[in-house]
Amino acid sequence: KFTDLFEKMVPMQVQQSLSIASSRKADLVNRLVGKLREATNLCNGVLASLNLPAALEDLSGDSVPQSILEKSRAVVQQGGLHSIEQLIKDLPELLQRNREILDESLKMLDDEETTDNELRAKFSQRWNRTPSGDLYKPLRAEGSNFRNVLDKAVQADQVVRERYNTHCEMIALLCKPESELCAAIPSANPANTLQGSEVVNVLKAQLQQLDEVKRNREVLEEEIKAVTFDMTTKFLTALAQDGAINEEALSTTELDTRYGAHTQRVKQNLCAQDDLLAQVQTSHQEFATLKQSNAEANNREEVLKKLASAHDSYVEISSNLKEGTKFYNDLTEILLRFQNKCSDIVFARKTERDELLKELQQS
């Protein structure tokens, strides 16, 4: 198992030339590899700035924006369309109930006043009690206040109903499960209609070619690193033949031979990338303008805006209805008290009338 320990020993001149040659080779390799890496960074930077390939990837995505999902959940939690539908149906009945109480109360006053007037006409000054008309003045004033309030409530009901009619469709949509909601929104990404369109196919193809260029680069880099470069024999021969070593000439010639093809391929690779990046930028320009101007995009915006305002209107309508229902219920209590007052005074007047009539007949 003999190993010659002095195998590598060479003349000093050769040793010096070898070290210079190796640093030349290192510079060349570093420069080539550096260019490849730099090109890859540039390519990644440009694609990132164009949001590629992400913009192309979510073409098939049709997701509902998070904010809309939250609004949908909120509306469903509050009972959805059904709960406000029911309340709106109740409004006319609540109104009618209050109207009837008020009308009955005023009718009682009217009837009693009529009999009082008839008796006054019949007995003239002998019918000397206060006329009902005078007595009922404050009650009638109160009655007209109630009528005004009810007229205003009718207008309020109308406003709520109109608001409901305007938004009920969108509110219903908002209450749908996410999958239906998603399907009902015109392609969440306007480019969706661009899917399969020329510009998208071209852009995809260009990105694939770019990927290939990048992959080639990796292979190229490995090959460059793998190149063997040993000047020992050349330098030894030169020294033996000429007595001197023209390191630079010998090294550059050898580097050209060994790395010429790689250098050429690096250049081609970089040119190929430059061309492709220019093409990608033009295609992306077209893609972006198409995306902007696409009628679908506008449609999507419109629907999303409507969905958002549907949520806001739902909240408003719910509070309007709560207020309206409370209004009618509170008013009913007040009107029932008013009705009691009217029936009490009418009852008192009737009792008084009967006594007066008895007196007159006896006299």
Binding site: V160, E323, G324, F327, L331, I334, R337, K341
Partner: peptide, 16 residues
């Protein structure tokens, strides 16, 4: 608010 207030209607006027 949308509906009229009932505050001034709640107070019962005293019959003289």
């Amino acid at each position: 608010s949308l509906y009229p207030s009932l505050e001034d209607l709640k107070v019962d006027k005293v019959m003289r």
